[in-house]
């Protein structure tokens, strides 16, 4: 069994429009992008559509992917992020989340962090203090603006910003070689 090597698969899509490679990429990324879209406030149906749109864009942009610039997942993340931002702008929303739509972050957040903690043991992200990981996650994955993270956690905006700054500094120190 060949190991999943997304950068090579993207390259095959980009150079020879290899549909088998694309199906493999779809299998890995579409459900994860869907999860990300749900975290960003999309309904499951909408999230499915946005994940499809992300994979279509991946197909169309595959030739532009440069593995020297970004890991495959970082590249897919930027496409998904742009799809989510474009969708919100089409719908005339300033931010991904409104208070009415806000879900209770507490419980799912804790579970996600717990589930991820295992997977992240070997990774540097888990080395962050939980309070920092939480704000990083809410910002990068859930797509919440800093002001809203402050509201949801009942913290002053300055505290949220300084946690993000500390976390980024730490990630920068440890993940410097990642890209």
């Amino acid at each position: 069994m060949e190991e999943f090597d997304p950068a090579r698969l993207i390259n095959r899509v980009g150079t020879t429009q290899d549909r088998d490679a694309f199906v493999e990429l779809f299998g890995h990324y579409a459900p994860r992008v869907k999860a990300m879209m749900i975290r960003r406030g999309a309904s499951p149906d909408r999230a499915d559509d946005l994940a499809q749109e992300t994979l279509v864009r991946l197909w169309r942009k595959a030739a532009q992917y440069d593995p020297a610039r970004a890991s495959a997942s970082a590249w897919v993340y930027t496409i998904a992020r742009n799809v989510s931002v474009d969708a919100m702008r089409r719908e005339g929303r300033a931010t991904p989340w409104t208070e009415e739509e806000g879900v209770d972050l507490d419980e799912p957040e804790r579970q996600l962090l717990a589930a991820e903690r295992e997977a992240l043991v070997q990774s540097t992200i888990v080395s962050l203090p939980e309070e920092q990981l939480r704000v990083i996650r809410m910002s990068f994955f859930d797509g919440l603006p800093h002001s809203q993270i402050a509201d949801l956690l009942g913290l002053p905006l300055g505290t949220v910003k300084s946690r993000i700054r500390l976390a980024l500094q730490r990630l920068k120190d440890r993940l410097g070689g990642l890209i």
Binding site: Y29, R32, V33, M36, A70, S71, A72, S73, A74, W75, V76, Y77, T78, A80, R81, S123, I125, I136, R137, F140, F141, L168, L171, K172, L175, G176, L178, I179
Partner: peptide, 10 residues
């Protein structure tokens, strides 16, 4: 670098 964090979370 920040996008790489997003990729790792994804």
């Amino acid at each position: 670098r920040y996008e790489a964090i997003g990729g790792a979370l994804l």
